[in-house]
Amino acid sequence: MDTILPIIAGAIFASGIYLLLRPSLILTIIGIILISNSVNLALFTLGRISTENPPLIAAGSVMPEVPFANPLPQALILTAIVIGFGLLAFALALAYRSYKELGTVDQDQLLKDPEDTSTAIVNNTDNTEKRDV
């Protein structure tokens, strides 16, 4: 396991980078998902994989039975997965919104420089002037 998992993690990371560089925005986001999973896998592997007792404390004792497995990497991965999930949900929503607004998922079109940055704010000027602060 200790040799296979790093190779798998590396392969997933590489595929993620490939997808990240594709022109389609959706593929880019899938690339981020893959990289995120490979990093979690790396975290898991680097925390040492072992087949020891589960780190549960029996009633009446203060310590789990030694030798016990290290629970910390899983706690870290769980945190990372939750955070990653939230961020990706936002990224997907943003991608969908951009597709609706700009009509394309091709990043060459999507990411070119905004033409006139004042427009967004000029509209607001109208709002603010009417309102009483």
Binding site: L20, L25, T28, I29, I32, I35, S36, V39, A42, L43, A80, L87, L88, F90, A91, L94, A95, R97, S98, E101, L102, L110, L111, K112, D113, P114, E115, D116, T117, T119, A120, N123
Partner: peptide, 25 residues
Amino acid sequence: NSKNQLQGALKYVIINLFSSLLFLF
């Protein structure tokens, strides 16, 4: 949600997600 902001936000979001993953690694 103005067009410009979406264009700016996309770049910002993707590069920052990537940098966070590197950090985690």
